[in-house]
Simulated assay, not measured.
Amino acid sequence: MIIGPGVTIQGNVAIYGDDSLMPRDDPEHDDPAPAPPRSARPRRRGGFGLLRRLRFAALPLLPVALVMVLTPWGRGLLADGRARAESLFGAGPSPSASSPASEPAPPASASSAPATAPATVQLQPSSGKAGVAVQLTAHGFAAGEKIEARAGTKLLTTLTADAGGTAEASVTAARAGTKAGAVVVQLVGRTSRKSAKATYRVA
């Protein structure tokens, strides 16, 4: 600092040893001003950030979901997928133990089994003289139905099948005077329309 011509405070100190004229360092003013405190920013929670990322990631899938739900084509694909999943992993839960057990099917009656079997007829004996009675036995007809026994166009007799579809009778397959040869005896059920044939050979 210049006081006069050629005189400075530093010169006075050097010459007179008086440092009162020297300016004092003020630590309150010389220190640099402290930096203003930073405002504390609120810390984001990780959960909200994750939800936000998931929301943005799901946006491209929104049109696909709308197509699958609102269009018949999409609903058809969903139904096919559900059917395949049920076929792979099982269709629905198994019935609980508390549900009542299904009743067993009633046993088939004795008359139903013969009704499904083919009708047959036997002649005993199957050969002999004309005018001789033979034993006729029929099987496989409906229970209780009437059965007509004919030799050609002639009605020999009418039989009635029992509960098992069986009928027996004594008939004359070949009347007296019939020439040697084969006589066909045919039986026809009036209800089941089943038929059976047997041959009696005239000697």
Rank of each mutant, 00 (worst) to 15 (best):
98 S>P: 01
98 S>Q: 10
99 S>C: 02
101 A>H: 05
102 S>Q: 09
102 S>V: 08
102 S>C: 02
102 S>Y: 03
103 E>D: 10
103 E>M: 08
103 E>G: 05
103 E>I: 06
103 E>P: 06
104 P>Q: 11
104 P>D: 02
104 P>M: 11
105 A>F: 08
105 A>D: 12
106 P>R: 05
106 P>W: 00
106 P>A: 07
106 P>F: 04
107 P>K: 10
107 P>V: 14
108 A>T: 12
109 S>T: 12
110 A>V: 10
111 S>F: 03
111 S>H: 04
112 S>L: 13
112 S>P: 01
113 A>S: 14
113 A>G: 14
114 P>W: 04
115 A>T: 03
116 T>P: 00
116 T>L: 05
116 T>F: 06
116 T>M: 07
117 A>F: 01
118 P>A: 06
119 A>F: 03
119 A>M: 05
120 T>G: 04
120 T>D: 03
120 T>N: 01
121 V>K: 00
121 V>A: 06
122 Q>R: 11
123 L>E: 02
123 L>S: 07
123 L>C: 12
124 Q>M: 13
124 Q>V: 15
124 Q>D: 10
125 P>V: 04
125 P>M: 04
126 S>E: 11
127 S>H: 03
127 S>C: 03
127 S>L: 05
127 S>G: 04
128 G>R: 00
129 K>R: 07
129 K>A: 09
130 A>Q: 03
130 A>F: 00
131 G>P: 03
131 G>C: 08
132 V>H: 01
132 V>D: 00
133 A>V: 12
133 A>D: 03
134 V>E: 03
134 V>Y: 10
135 Q>G: 06
135 Q>W: 07
137 T>N: 15
137 T>G: 13
137 T>D: 15
140 G>E: 09
141 F>E: 09
141 F>A: 04
142 A>M: 07
142 A>Q: 12
143 A>L: 12
146 K>C: 05
146 K>W: 13
147 I>F: 02
148 E>K: 02
150 R>M: 07
150 R>V: 04
150 R>G: 01
151 A>S: 09
151 A>D: 00
151 A>P: 02
151 A>Y: 00
153 T>F: 09
154 K>Q: 11
155 L>H: 05
155 L>N: 04
155 L>E: 10
157 T>V: 08
158 T>R: 08
158 T>V: 10
158 T>I: 06
159 L>P: 08
159 L>S: 08
160 T>N: 11
161 A>E: 14
161 A>G: 14
162 D>Y: 14
162 D>P: 10
163 A>L: 13
166 T>N: 15
167 A>P: 15
167 A>N: 07
168 E>Q: 15
168 E>P: 11
169 A>R: 02
170 S>N: 15
170 S>Q: 15
171 V>D: 07
171 V>R: 08
172 T>Q: 11
172 T>I: 13
173 A>L: 04
174 A>W: 07
174 A>F: 10
174 A>I: 05
175 R>H: 13
175 R>K: 08
175 R>D: 14
177 G>I: 01
177 G>P: 02
178 T>W: 01
179 K>I: 12
182 A>Y: 01
182 A>N: 13
182 A>L: 08
183 V>N: 06
184 V>K: 02
184 V>D: 13
184 V>A: 05
185 V>L: 02
185 V>S: 00
185 V>K: 00
186 Q>T: 09
186 Q>P: 05
187 L>R: 04
189 G>S: 11
189 G>L: 12
190 R>V: 02
190 R>S: 11
191 T>K: 08
192 S>I: 13
193 R>L: 09
195 S>Q: 08
195 S>H: 01
196 A>Y: 04
